[in-house]
Write a protein that binds this DNA or RNA. Sequence first.
RNA 1: CGGGGAGUAGCGCAGCCCGGUUAGCGCGCAGCGUUCGGGACGCUGAGGCCGGAGGUUCGAAUCCUCUCUCCCCGACCA
Length: 578
Amino acid sequence: MRMAHLFGRTLREAPGDVELPSHRLMLRSGMVRPLGAGIYSLLPLGFRTVTKVEQIIREEINAIGGQEMMMPVVHPADVWRESGRYDAVGSEMTRFKDRGDRDMVLAMTHEEVVADLARQEINSYRQLPQLVYHIQTKWRDEPRARGGLIRVREFTMKDSYSLDLDEAGLDVQYRNHWRAYERIFRRCGLGFVVVGADTGMMGGSASHEFMALSDYGEDIVLICPNGDYAANQEVALFRREAAGTEAPRPMAEVETPNTTTIQKLAEYLEIPVAKTAKAVFFIGESGAFIFAVIRGDMDVNETKLRKATGERTLTPATAEQIKAIGAEPGYGSPVGVRNCVVVADESVRDTPNLVAGANKVGYHYVDTNLGRDWQADVVADIASAVAEMPCPHCGAALTAERAIEVGNIFKLGSRYSAMFGATYLDADGQSKPILMGSYGIGSGRVTATIVEQHHDDKGIIWPASVAPYHVSLVSIFTESDPAPAQACDRLYDEMLAAGIEVLYDDRAERAGVKFNDADLIGCPVRLSVSARTLANGQAEIKARTSPEAIFVPLDEAIPTVRRMIAEAMAPLNGDPIS
RNA sequence: CGGGGAGUAGCGCAGCCCGGUUAGCGCGCAGCGUUCGGGACGCUGAGGCCGGAGGUUCGAAUCCUCUCUCCCCGACCA
C-alpha cells in the first residue's frame, strides 16, 4: 500500500480527552475513528489488523473442528422470551418494533439462535458433537462505554457454540477451546492468565476468563505466585485462618461516640479492625432485606453474596430500610434485628468476641459471638479476596493485578436446550437435552489490548502476526534527487511480487515526518533508502523493537527483510514459550 | 442513573468571570519560494451561523433557562 493513497491520516495530536494508550495510539495512527460513544469505524489500517486477529481466531477454531457460519444481528423478541432473557436482561439490550409492530431486539449474543437452530437440525445422537461459530457484530448498550476500543457498545466478536451428547463431550469441547484460546492469544503476542470466573447472565456450571494483564484493565485478578491458583476477584477464594480459640466473654454494651466507621471504632477502642464485625445492608431482587456481616478487616464480595442468597441483584439499602429492621446506620449489628436474612461470612463465625454495633447511635457491643448473641440464616464465604491473602491451595501470598477480559469460555449445559426443547434421541431411543457451551473472543478488544501491551512513547510495536503490514518502506528523497524514490519504487514492486506485506511511505514528506509515522504505525521492520545510503549502494533496515539500524547492499535488502520477518513471526506460532 | 469536566476552523487550545470593531493562536490544509535523515523556514491563502433552542439586552462566544453530545470517576457489565 502506498501511503500517499492510504485512506486515513496520522495525527500529530490526539484529542485531549483520550486516556488509554491504545485509544490514543489507534486514533493517532489512523486505525480507528469514533462515530459516537462506544461506536467506532475501523479505517483500512485498523481493519487490516483486526482482520488478522480474526484470521488467527478462525484458524484455531477451525483446528478444533469449528464450522464457521453466520447468524443474524436482528432477532425477533420471541426467541429471547423463550429463554427468559427478554425480561431478565435490562436496557443493555436494545429493543424496537418492526413495521408490523412486532418486538425485535439487537443481538447481544447468540445462545438463543443456536438453541433454536439445534432443535431444528439435531435429532439424533449420530449428529453430535457439533461446534459452530461466527464472527459477528454485537450491540450492547453499555451504561457507560469507556476506554476507546476496550469497552464499546458495538463490537465484533467471535463466538462459538458447542453441542454435545453428555458432560464428557462438553468437557472435551471446553478443554479444546481452552487450548485453542491459549494458542490464539499466544499467536497475537498477548500476555494473559486464565482465571475462574462468575457465570453471570449466561448461567451454566463453569466459566473461565482469559485475562490480559494491563494497568487499565477493568477487572482484578488474584494470582498465586506459585502458579497454583488464579481467579477473578468476583469469585476468588483464599485460605482462611484457623478459627480463633479465645474463650467467649460475656457480651457488654459500651458507649462509642462518633464511631460510624470501622476505622474510627477500632481507633476509639484501641483494637485491631479484625476484632470488629462490619454490617453491610442490601435489598435483594426478591425484596428481601439482606444483612451481611463480615469481619472489619474484610470487604463483602457482592458476587459471592448474590450466590449465597440466591438473589440476582443487590442494591444498597436506604437508611429508612435499615431502621425498619431494627438496625441503625453506622451502628448496625445482627444482634436483635428482625425481618431480614442474616448472612455471616465465615470470618465472623471463626473469630470470637467481635465488637459489633448496638443498633443505637453512639453504642457498640463488645464480645459478641455468632450462635450465642445472634443467629445467621446463612454462613458462607462472602469475602472479597485481596492482595496478600493466602492462596487457597498453597498459602502463598496472592497478588492482585488489573486485567482486561479478552476471552471467555462457558459451560452452559442444558440451560438453553431445555427451554428450547433442543433434544436428541440417544442410542436407546431416549430423548435427552443437548448440552451446550459458549465461547467468546472480542476481536476489537483483543486488538486494543495488544496495543496496551505493545507500545512505547513513539507508538505501537505490533507483534508481526497482527501487524497491518510487515514492512514500512521509507523513501527519503528530494525533488532534485529522485533516485532514492526510484530505488524504493523498485523495492516496493519486488516486495509485492514476493508477497511481502509492505506499507510504502512514498509521500513527499521530510525524513522526520516519515520516521515518526513509521514508529507510530509500528510495523515490525523499517526499510529506508536515501541519497546517503544509496551513495554506498545500501539500504537501511531497522526493527521496530531495536534502537539500532543495519545497512545492507540494496540487493540484499529484501532477503534480509524477509529473514527479519520470519524471525519476528517465529515465536508467535501459538506453541507454549518454554 | 449519581458525581465531575468539556463542546469556539480538521486537531490542540485561548477568549467567557467583567457583554461592545471584521473571533484569535499553534499544528494541519492549498499555492509560491528556500530547505531536505527524526514532526523545517518565509510569504500568500482557504477554512468558524462559537453544539442546539429559547430568553435578557441597543448589542451575546461571553449573562439566564432548557436541551443535545462527548470525556472522566462511580453504579452497572459475558
